[in-house]
Design a protein around this nucleic acid. Structure first.
Ligand SMILES: [Zn+2]
Ligand SMILES: [Zn+2]
Ligand SMILES: [Zn+2]
Ligand SMILES: [Zn+2]
Lengths: 140, 140
DNA sequence: TATAAGCTTAGAGCTAACTCTAAGGTCAAT
DNA sequence: ATTGACCTTAGAGTTAGCTCTAAGCTTATA
């Protein structure tokens, strides 16, 4: 039986975060001491590790809630439900990537155009480009 | 002289957002009517467009505040200051991209491994992979 | 037994960039 | 003069995921 700080150490999450996850309904200590201290079993540890792996994959805590309810009763859920959640997340990630790529490209162009030197910015091509609205092309 | 809703229409930002930008110190109506209505000049419009272009490039409102103070007094600032801000932002964007790319790769692997079918999830390889902590390899 | 470390809870605070509400004033048109 | 659309302000609410605080117990060690 692990106390919360032991679990924190084993998972790399803070005790605060673990209590927060409990408040969110994601995890729960299997046992409590008479004084109310949380005690975690190996099964609890595995559940937390599942949550952590899902976080690394990019799932939101809400997504993870769904994945966890599938996990505890796999018989009542299908592979399709799991892929639906995963696919949806992939689409979100792809959308954000596209946004960031556009920023990246813009920033690289800006940097390539500016001398970056110590003289004053009256002629700065970055400022000019921003003044020109990034030379059209940006719908949205 | 444009009223706030005219400026909103011209820039594609909401009047709420424009007032918010003013509260943040980014923009300001050059004039006010006797009743207190904001009136914007062409110069104000260009400033808002600068802000919008900078937002599109990924700059935060704080960054934009700095860029704007360079913009109004280019003689007292150098190209280097501008590139510093831009470079810093590019590094942030690159960091986020790396994070997202890792998620993307993970999600794609997960999707490739799962049948996605209607049968129950007792054998689901996505669930298994998450249970296995995404097969090690994820430092952090 | 005293001290320190760690546990409990409810709830506030943080970040970023909006987004919206309430309560009221203004303006053009009917 | 009365709609209705628009304007003003201060300030609260939203989102996600923590992060921290306060006030008070509990437990282990010296
Ligand atoms: Zn230069
Ligand atoms: Zn320059
Ligand atoms: Zn399957
Ligand atoms: Zn599956």
């Amino acid at each position: 039986m692990l106390e919360i700080s032991d679990l924190a150490q084993q998972t790399g999450l803070s005790a605060h975060t673990l209590r927060y996850y409990e408040k969110r309904g994601l995890i729960k200590a299997s046992n409590r001491s008479e004084a109310g201290y949380r005690f975690y079993t190996d099964s609890d540890v595995r559940r937390v590790q599942f949550v952590k792996a899902a976080r690394n994959a990019g799932f939101s805590l809400n997504d993870i809630g769904q994945l966890l309810s599938i996990r505890v009763d796999k018989h009542s859920h299908s592979c399709q439900e799991v892929t639906d959640i995963t696919q949806k997340k992939l689409l979100e990630v792809n959308a954000k990537m596209a946004e960031l790529q556009s920023m990246q490209q813009t920033l690289e162009l800006l940097l390539a155009s500016c001398c970056g030197g110590p003289e004053n910015a009256t002629h700065c091509s970055i400022m000019e480009a921003l003044d020109a609205g990034l030379s059209r092309e940006n719908e949205n």
